[in-house]
């Protein structure tokens, strides 16, 4: 199963047809960004990290606070 997943992942990464820069209009839309709303993302991450035992995963971890 692991090998199948790895193969699927490699196929997904390597088997893509080249999308030319002028064909990337939809990909460049604001709603297609990884985090379209910076302030909303900051706040949600902070709340979840202060109420759950795990955090991070979308970048290097940041500094702390006395959040409880």
């Amino acid at each position: 199963m692991k090998y199948l997943s790895a193969c699927c992942l490699l196929a997904a990464l390597c088997g893509c047809t080249t999308v030319q820069p002028w064909e990337r209009g939809l990909l460049a839309k604001p709603e297609m960004q990884w985090q379209p709303d910076t302030m909303e993302g900051v706040l949600q991450n902070q709340i979840h990290a202060s109420k759950e035992a795990s955090s991070g995963g979308s970048g290097a971890a940041g500094g702390g606070c006395g959040c409880n």
Partner: peptide, 29 residues
């Protein structure tokens, strides 16, 4: 979020700031 009762958890404000900037449209156009 902040509380007088500090706890052992680290938080992700910088993470979110850096990741949101870092992962933006570099991929997309």
């Amino acid at each position: 979020m902040s509380a007088r009762n500090g706890n052992g958890e680290r938080h992700t404000t910088l993470l979110a700031l850096t990741s949101s900037a870092m992962l933006l449209p570099a991929y997309q156009g």
